[in-house]
């Protein structure tokens, strides 16, 4: 079960701000979901191949050709902040 600190850590990892007053309620909801999930944890799955895809086929490959034209003006019409063709974001610190 998740502690309050774990809830905060996960929210941080997922980049979702949780108001401090809401952490306890969220913890309770998430733990309710984990109780549901844990029903499958005890199943013996020794030797069972994990199923990552709904279909058992392999990756199709695309020919190495340039097929895309420049549409940045159309795409950037949806952007919150743009200048000189660049998406602007709060200063990135390396």
């Amino acid at each position: 079960m998740l502690s309050l600190d774990e809830v905060r850590r996960i929210a941080d990892l997922a980049r979702i701000e949780i108001p401090e007053a809401g952490v306890a309620a969220l913890q309770q909801q998430l733990n309710g979901i984990l109780v549901l999930i844990e029903q499958m944890c005890a199943v013996d799955t020794t030797g069972v191949e994990p199923m990552a895809h709904a279909v058992d086929v392999t990756q199709r490959l695309r020919a190495d050709r340039v097929t895309e034209a420049d549409q940045h003006e159309l795409f950037q019409s949806a952007a919150p902040q743009v200048e000189d063709g660049l998406y602007l974001v709060p200063k990135v610190i390396e």
Binding site: I16, E17, F75, P80, P90, K91
Partner: peptide, 22 residues
């Protein structure tokens, strides 16, 4: 960053992410 909602007020990049998504 590229489309959709962005929070109006934020302190820095990570705060922008967290508030935007919240």
């Amino acid at each position: 960053v590229r489309y959709g909602h962005r929070a109006a007020d934020y302190a820095d990049l990570n705060d922008m992410y967290r508030k935007t998504r919240a």
